[in-house]
Computed example of a mutant assay.
Amino acid sequence: MPAAALKPRPLPTQSTARRSVPLDSPYEPLSKTPLPAGRPREWYVTHNRRLKAMRLAIALLDSGVHLPVQARDETIRSTAELIGVHPPSATTCHMVRALMRYAR
Rank of each mutant, 00 (worst) to 15 (best):
M1S: 10
A4F: 05
A4T: 05
A4P: 10
A5I: 00
A5V: 04
L6K: 08
K7Q: 08
P8D: 02
P8L: 04
P10G: 02
P10I: 00
L11H: 07
L11Q: 07
P12Q: 03
P12D: 01
T13G: 14
T13E: 03
T13M: 12
Q14Y: 10
S15F: 15
T16N: 05
R19K: 11
R19V: 06
P22G: 03
L23S: 10
L23W: 11
S25K: 14
S25I: 09
P26N: 15
P26M: 15
E28A: 12
E28T: 09
P29M: 07
P29T: 04
L30N: 04
L30G: 04
K32L: 09
K32G: 13
P34S: 09
P34Q: 12
L35Y: 12
L35F: 04
P36R: 11
P36S: 11
P36Y: 15
G38W: 10
R39S: 13
P40W: 14
P40A: 11
R41C: 02
R41D: 05
R41L: 08
R41V: 03
Y44D: 07
T46D: 14
T46L: 14
T46Q: 09
H47R: 12
H47Q: 03
H47Y: 15
N48A: 01
R49P: 08
R49Q: 11
R49M: 15
R50P: 04
R50S: 11
L51D: 02
L51N: 10
K52N: 09
A53E: 06
M54K: 08
R55F: 04
A57E: 11
A57L: 01
A57S: 07
I58P: 00
A59L: 02
A59K: 00
A59P: 08
D62R: 03
D62N: 04
D62M: 14
S63W: 06
G64E: 01
G64R: 00
G64M: 09
V65W: 05
H66Q: 09
L67E: 14
L67Y: 15
P68I: 02
P68K: 10
A71L: 04
R72M: 13
D73H: 10
D73E: 07
E74F: 05
I76N: 09
S78M: 15
A80K: 13
A80I: 01
A80N: 05
L82S: 14
I83W: 06
G84M: 10
H86S: 13
P87A: 15
P88H: 07
P88Y: 02
S89G: 14
T91V: 13
C93W: 06
M95N: 15
R97V: 04
A98V: 07
A98N: 05
L99I: 09
R101N: 11
A103C: 10
R104L: 04
